[in-house]
């Protein structure tokens, strides 16, 4: 297990290096000069200031020098300096990552638990009303654009029925006290998390239903049933574990796409996370920030995958025995 883990980590490092190099290249062949954007934001600048800014950010160096400088810096944990915010990228990312993780993890856990429960429940009785409803709902969640679901939820639950706040992560004038603050954030979290969860809810219910059906029909479950074990025990002890496996794997595999979803959901709800930061950085050609976010999400995805891998082995010891 240790050996395969270290191999995975080695792989991950090579992958991250490739991510860095390719993204750096991609962004640097892009038309549109970050210094021009900055000068524009400043309301115009003289050629001298432009040259100075370029030199400041090392943009006057040849491409390969810039690349190696960047790689060297990343190795030292320095993701560079944001053109726009004039702040270290790592600082910007750490300012925002909390909000995104809160949103993403809440949404994923919600989708995972509710989705799996619905999927398994509906697998018990195929063609029942519940089963059909779950199938239909999951198809619906699959087919509607996630940001559109968000807009509809706002119209319904913030505008027509003013229950939840429209946007942001906390009320502008923060309520006093830790508890009140937490409650405030939770209140703001409901709609964005529900929106982001909607696609994965559909996904996990479908997935767990499919794998549960398969497991239920497999020989060893039939044997267990034949041996006279109760239905409850069979379902929850034997089948559940096996049905959850693909769901867990997918949670890992899909993590990068969850971040994509977060970009849209954060934009709809003005959630101050990495997604909105990434979107702004693109609009401002703030390439160090954008590179940093892409790199950081790659790291996040790889870490999640390795964790999932370990979780997988714990749930299903047969894998490590192979």
């Amino acid at each position: 297990m240790v050996k395969s883990l270290s191999k995975r980590i080695g792989n991950a490092v090579i992958l991250l290096l490739a991510v860095l190099v390719l993204n750096f290249t991609l962004i640097h062949i892009a038309p549109g000069d970050p210094v021009e954007v900055l000068a524009g934001e400043m309301g115009g600048a003289t050629p001298e200031l432009l040259a100075e800014l370029r030199a400041d950010f090392g943009l006057d160096q040849p491409f390969h020098v810039q690349l190696f400088t960047y790689l060297g810096n990343v190795l030292q944990g320095n993701l560079g300096y944001s053109f726009y915010y004039d702040k270290p990228v790592t600082e910007l990312i750490f300012d925002r990552i909390g909000a995104t993780l809160l949103l993403v993890i809440t949404a994923l856990l919600f989708a995972l638990f509710v989705g799996t429960a619905l999927g398994i429940a509906s697998a018990q009785k195929r063609n029942s009303l519940l089963s059909n409803v779950v199938t239909l709902l999951s198809l619906a969640g699959f087919s509607a654009p996630v940001f559109w679901i968000g807009i509809m939820l706002i119209l319904l639950l913030s505008v027509a029925l003013p229950i939840f706040p429209i946007a942001g992560m906390a009320t502008a004038d923060e309520p006093e006290g830790n508890f009140a603050y937490i409650l405030d954030v939770v209140w703001h979290l409901v709609l964005p998390a529900l929106t982001l969860a909607s696609i994965y809810l559909a996904f996990y219910s479908r997935l767990s239903r499919a794998s549960m059906l398969e497991v239920l029909e497999s020989d060893y479950i039939r044997t267990a049933r034949a041996k006279g074990l109760s239905r409850f025990l069979v379902v929850y002890k034997h089948a559940l574990r096996n049905a959850v496996l693909p769901v867990v794997t997918f949670a890992g595999l899909q993590f990068a796409q969850v971040i994509s979803g977060a970009v849209l959901v954060e934009t709809v709800f003005a959630w101050p996370g990495l997604g909105t930061l990434a979107f702004e950085s693109i609009l401002r050609r703030d390439s160090p920030t954008l590179l940093g976010i892409l790199f950081f999400s790659a790291v996040l995805v790889l870490v999640v995958n390795i964790v999932v891998d370990i979780a997988y082995r714990i749930i299903d010891p047969r894998i490590s025995a192979k």
Binding site: P31, G32, E36, A39, G40, I282, L283, R284, R285
Partner: peptide, 9 residues
């Protein structure tokens, strides 16, 4: 224009 700078340029 995709961003401010491209247009400014």
């Amino acid at each position: 224009a995709p961003d401010f700078g491209t247009w400014v340029k």
